[in-house]
Simulated scan of single mutants.
Amino acid sequence: MLGERVKKLTKLMLTGLTMALCVVAFSPTVKAEAAMLQESEPNDNPAQANQLPLNTWVKGKMDDEYDYDVDWYQFTIPKRGVSQIEMIPDSTNTSGAGWEVSVQDVNRHEMLQISGRTAESYKLGLAPGKYYMKVSGIHQTFVDNTHPYNLRINYSESEEWEIEQYYENKNFSNANNILPNKKYTGNMYSERDVDYYRVKINGKQ
C-alpha cells in the first residue's frame, strides 16, 4: 500500500514538473532575441548561394586577400510589394572597405546594383519569385583580408507598387493591372526600362 502511494506521488510530481516546463517553454511573455545570420562558405557561385530570409541581417566577409572572393545569396519575394537592399560594414570592420552588391533574377538579368562602404538601394517593386544577390569587394579599398559586412533585403507587401521584371520581358500582354482613382508607384531601374499599365474604365462611351 505504501509503495503504491509513493508511486502515485512520484507520478504526480513528475507530471507537475512537466507541466511547469511546458508553461515556461510556451509562455507568450518569454521572448528570444533573434541572432544575426552568418554567411556560410563556400558560396562562390549561384549554385552555392546561401538562403537569405527577408528583413533579416546576415554577416559575411571577403575571405581573400587579393579581393577575388564573392558571396552569393538567394532570396524569394512571396507577393507583390516593395524591396530595398541595405549594406553596412560590421562593427568589427575597421578596414575602410567597400562593396558592390548586384541583385539578379533567375536568368541572371541585373535588376539593381549598389556600391560603397555604406549603401542603400532605391526601392523597387520586384515581381514575386526567386532572386540572387552577389556581393564583391571594391578593389584597392581593403587593408586586411577579412572586411566583414552586414547585408539585408528589406521587403514589405504592397498592392500600390508596380510588379517589376526585366525590361526585355515587358510588353502590353503582361502590363500591370491598375484601378482608377488609385495611386501606384513605379521605378525606372535602368535607362532601357519601360513600364506598361492596363486600366479598365466602366461607363458609357
Results as ranks from 00 to 15, higher is better:
Asn177Gly: 13
Ala32Phe: 15
Gln165Ile: 01
Lys130Cys: 04
Thr56Val: 05
Asn187Glu: 13
Lys170Cys: 02
Glu41Ile: 12
Glu39Gly: 03
Asn50Leu: 12
His109Thr: 14
Asp193Cys: 15
Gln51Thr: 13
Gly16Glu: 05
Leu179Lys: 03
Gln140Arg: 07
Leu151Tyr: 13
Gln48Thr: 01
Val6Leu: 12
Val101Asp: 04
Glu39Leu: 05
Leu126Ser: 02
Lys123Phe: 02
Tyr197Thr: 05
Ala97Ile: 02
Val70Ile: 10
Ala47Tyr: 15
Asn45Leu: 09
Met188Tyr: 00
Thr94Asp: 10
Val30Ala: 12
Gln205Gly: 11
Ser27Phe: 15
Tyr189Met: 05
Asn50Met: 10
Gly96Val: 13
Asp64Arg: 06
Arg198Met: 06
Lys170Met: 11
Leu151Cys: 01
Tyr122Pro: 01
Ile178Thr: 04
Lys200Asn: 09
Phe142Arg: 11
Val6Asp: 00
Ala119Thr: 12
Ala127Cys: 03
Tyr166Thr: 08
Gln205Val: 14
Ile153Thr: 02
Tyr184Asn: 04
Leu151Glu: 01
Thr146Tyr: 15
Asn171Pro: 03
Glu39Val: 07
Asn93His: 05
Glu100Pro: 00
Arg117Thr: 11
Lys204Leu: 09
Gln113Gly: 08
Tyr155Ser: 00
Glu100His: 07
Ser27Leu: 01
Lys123Asn: 05
Ala127Ser: 07
Ser83Val: 05
Leu21Phe: 09
Val101His: 04
Ser91Gln: 01
Asn43His: 02
Ile77Ala: 04
Asn93Ser: 04
Asp71Ile: 09
Asn145Met: 09
Gly98Gln: 03
Arg117Trp: 00
Asn176Leu: 08
Lys182Phe: 05
Asp105Ala: 04
